[in-house]
Simulated scan of single mutants.
Amino acid sequence: MSEALLVLEDGRTFRGEPYGAVGRCVGEAVFSTGMTGYQETLTDPSYHRQVVVQTAPHIGNTGVNDEDGESSRIWVSGYVVRDPSPRPSSWRSRRSLGDELAAQGVVAIAGVDTRALTRHLRERGAMRAGVFSGPDAALPVPQLLDVVRSAPQMAGSALAEEVSTERPYLVEALGDRRFTVAAIDLGIKSMTPQRMAERGMAVHVLPASSTLDDVLAVSPDGVFFSNGPGDPATADDQVALLHEVLDRRIPFFGICFGNQLLGRALGFGTYKLGYGHRGINQPVMDRTTGKVEVTAHNHGFAVQAPLDGEVSTPFGRARVSHVCLNDDVVEGLECLDVPAFSVQYHPEAAAGPHDAGYLFDRFADLMTDARDGKDA
């Protein structure tokens, strides 16, 4: 049987079998703890230029369907699994996961001790990696290690515009239109405008390079910044746009990358986590209600802000509204003097859980309050 090789930038290697496409790929090795939702993970643009390790041992059980993708393609650079299902078993399945990976040219490796690999990444941190199969797997490891170490680091990478839509499009409200939202696509998942549409929001999805004039052209009741890949410290143009949105007191909601950019706009720093949060079982406390939510995460960067008390910012007072109960990472921000808030995790969470779906209602309430204030 042919062999595949996973090479980490610190020199550790894992041998396995080719899965998906045959060839080579490089990216940042990260692990995701979700036991379901692998199709949503693969098609999430936030995983652009990452080699995703699934900690759940059995992957591919339900195959791939035509409904659950979060975008039109697979975005991961490479994929690492332990025990792929030899055949899918679901009435919704249209093809196997291995066939889908191969069809989209995604190089993957199976038969890896993903428990040992995950423990290594937890101890050493996320790092660059390469998956090599076919003739490449027979090359000397030092040569493959040079390939891995020549790949760009995630820190300092500007990737949002690489995954953003090239032209605007509209997701119409379901039922009566109550609001119009300008959504800046930094790597948006398809379920996000769907969740807004369910609440009567018509969503104009705009490219990451959009200007204030582009935003105002759709006469929005609110502005949304999506999730996305890369280092938030590189997104100066989007932060400048957000400054203008906040100056005009247009209601704002941000998710994931959008949370990090709100943090930057308020004057906070951002930093890279050791190995990030990726999975669908992360406990977060909403400090507004005191409730604990089980949430979906995919982020390798976070906002550096004081966890307690109110902080003065260029846009008035702000505070940390949500915090991760595993490690006290900032998971949400709330402005007290302008209509803006954000969360680091994913309330749209197509694969679940759905504990945080109320945040879209909170956005609707923010736009209602702003409209009522204008009418008063």
Rank of each mutant, 00 (worst) to 15 (best):
A217S: 15
G269I: 04
A197H: 07
V205E: 00
L206V: 07
G279Q: 09
G267A: 08
A182I: 01
T211Y: 05
N259E: 14
D213W: 02
Q238A: 11
R195C: 11
I280C: 02
L246C: 06
Q194S: 14
S209I: 04
D213Y: 04
F179S: 06
L273N: 10
D214R: 09
D247R: 15
G222K: 06
T270I: 12
M191E: 11
L206P: 02
D185Y: 01
I255Q: 06
D237C: 01
L262I: 10
L246T: 05
G187E: 14
T234F: 00
R195N: 14
G230S: 04
L262A: 11
S219G: 08
S226D: 07
A240I: 03
P251T: 08
A182D: 02
F179T: 02
N281D: 15
A217N: 12
L262E: 02
N259G: 06
I184V: 15
P207H: 10
L216A: 12
A217R: 14
L266T: 01
F225E: 00
F252P: 07
I250D: 04
V203F: 01
K272M: 12
P207Y: 09
L261I: 15
Q260M: 14
L216Q: 13
L262K: 08
T192L: 03
T180I: 09
N259T: 06
Y275K: 03
Q260C: 12
I184R: 02
H204N: 10
L241F: 12
G258C: 12
D221N: 14
I188M: 09
E198V: 03
P220C: 10
F252H: 04
Q194A: 15
V223G: 09
G258Y: 05
M196G: 11
D236N: 07
K272N: 01
L242Q: 07
P207D: 10
T192G: 00
I184E: 03
V245M: 04
V181Y: 01
G222E: 09
N227G: 14
G279E: 11
T234R: 00
S210Q: 04
R178Y: 04
T211D: 09
A202P: 00
L212P: 03
G230H: 01
V218D: 09
P207K: 10
R278M: 11
P229G: 04
D221K: 01
G187K: 06
A182R: 03
